[in-house]
Amino acid sequence: MAWRWLLAAAVLGGLAPWLLRSVPVRIRVAGSTAFLPLVLRMVAAYRREHPGVEIDVTGGGSGFALAQLQRGVVDVGVSDLPRAAPRLVTRPWARTPVLMVVARRLGVTAIRRSAIRSLRGSSRPVWPGTRRPVIFVERPYGSGTQALVERWAGPLNPRLRPVILGANGLVAQVVAATAGATGFLDASDLRADLVPLRLDGVTPTLANVAAGRYPLVLTARILTRARPGGEVRRLVRALTSTRAVAAAGRPLGYLPP
């Protein structure tokens, strides 16, 4: 008796993935949170032009996108990691400045690369001109921002104990609440009680990024598995159009590559 039920359940269970997969095309996009506002804006525009296509967008970070692309769970990934990704196809996509921020009440507004490097290398770093210790707020391995910062500003002294936070929004929160703290984030997470520092005398603006003067620029790429299907290819072509990135990106703080 019960075996009969089990068999019915097994048949249903076996058929379920097949039944559910015959639902209309669904493209899954995931990737870097630093570029999520731009992805959402461009995908919304694409949806308006192609009403039949279902697109899921989720953040999750660059590392998440790479891992899930390889698992086959995600179709389009946005990564700002320099890390190579085996068996994935990469296309350059967009750029955005990374800001080094401190709490407004700290009173610091500019810093040079050499000064940052020596602070990060020191075992007891102190803000120049004050006796306030520097508290570093970092991002974990797998963050494109962190990889960029370590390349430009050098590694932290291993005897320091930085705060490591999973998202730029949290970095903003903690740096704003802690005089003496400093961290790196993108423009969409900037708040009024934070000051973005001038680096080597250059203010972080899109114009300075475009002119190649601002040193800290994060580059995102769009990734798919090799030979994506027609719908995915169409979406990627629309996303990577330089004109579209320029138009949608400027008001949000992004530039085409």
């Binding site: 559910l20 639902v23 669904r26 899954r28 959402l40 919304a44 949806r47 279902e54 697109i55 899921d56 967008v57 989720t58 953040g59 999750g60």
Partner: peptide, 16 residues
């Protein structure tokens, strides 16, 4: 099931 809210597009149970 993912971390983004569903309001972005109309979708059913097969969507995240």
């Amino acid at each position: 099931a993912g971390v983004e809210p569903a309001s972005a597009s109309p979708r059913g149970l097969m969507g995240g």
